[in-house]
Simulated assay, not measured.
Amino acid sequence: MNNLKEKKCFLLDMDGTIYLGDELIDGAKGFLKKVKEENKRYLFLTNNSSKNKGAYVEKLEKLGINAEEEEIFTSGEATTIYLNKRKQGAKVFLLGTKALEEEFEKAGFELVKERNKEVDFVVLGFDTTLTYEKLWIACDYIAEGVEYIATHPDFVCPLAEGKCMPDVGSIIALIKGTTGKEPLVVGKPNKYIVEAILEKYKLEKEEIAMVGDRLYTDIRTGLDNGLSSILVMSGETDEKMLENTEFVPNYVFNSIKDMIDIV
């Protein structure tokens, strides 16, 4: 565990790692307190692009965690950073919530909401307001050759009580079935979200550990991008999944509570 004691920043997945639904995972507050006591930092990193930073600050505060907006980084923000490098002020057809729309508008993008308009990118976020009409228009643009970006690849949004809420990955599969096309994906486990974090927070890869409950996003983020990877068994992954995975974490803990002594 000595290697982990040398880390200066912990990237913390939220759903399944810090909380499940509206329930704080035991030990989360103690871990965060210990990180700050050691003069280290953490960033709450989530693939959930349905909410903005303010919403996460509010949710964490309700759970008893005081967080600042600069301590939260979403796949939605990473996508705006990536697209602004490609074309500032681009015209975007966005499948996203009102919160994600506001984030894109704040970043300088022009949101197109009708068909048969000039569009630079189609962006698929975790859209809990998704309608058939929005999906149909997106598929038309994608089929016509408009570049297609997704905020993240997760298939299911983790919730308490084992509820099965379709996430972006499920909609990616639907769009592929309709258009035959797949998106460039910005969020975990892809390099674009890591590059955005390194740039914004002035960090080096060797200073960072990625902590999360999902093998194919959180753990793969570490493995594919040169970060230490830490799996917590408090969310999606069970023992059978861990035994059969190709994405073998560097470290495994029952929950973040068990990490307090290794910071």
Rank of each mutant, 00 (worst) to 15 (best):
I72C: 04
I72G: 04
F73Y: 13
F73T: 07
F73K: 09
F73C: 10
T74A: 06
T74G: 03
S75M: 03
G76A: 13
G76P: 03
E77C: 04
T79G: 01
T79P: 01
T80D: 00
T80V: 08
I81N: 07
I81R: 03
Y82R: 15
L83V: 04
L83K: 06
N84A: 09
K85M: 11
K85A: 12
R86Q: 14
K87D: 05
K87L: 07
K87P: 06
K87Y: 02
K87F: 01
Q88F: 14
G89Q: 01
G89E: 12
G89R: 00
V92N: 01
F93A: 03
F93C: 03
F93H: 09
L94Q: 11
L95T: 07
L95H: 02
L95S: 06
G96I: 05
T97M: 10
K98W: 09
K98R: 15
A99T: 07
A99P: 10
A99I: 08
A99G: 06
L100C: 12
E101G: 10
E101S: 14
E102D: 13
E102I: 05
E103I: 01
E103T: 11
E103Q: 09
K106H: 15
K106W: 11
K106S: 13
A107R: 12
A107S: 15
G108S: 14
G108V: 14
F109V: 03
F109D: 00
E110S: 08
E110N: 08
L111S: 05
V112E: 04
V112Y: 11
K113F: 05
K113R: 15
K113V: 10
E114G: 08
E114T: 12
R115C: 10
N116W: 02
K117R: 13
E118Y: 04
V119H: 00
V119M: 02
V119W: 01
D120P: 01
D120I: 00
D120Q: 03
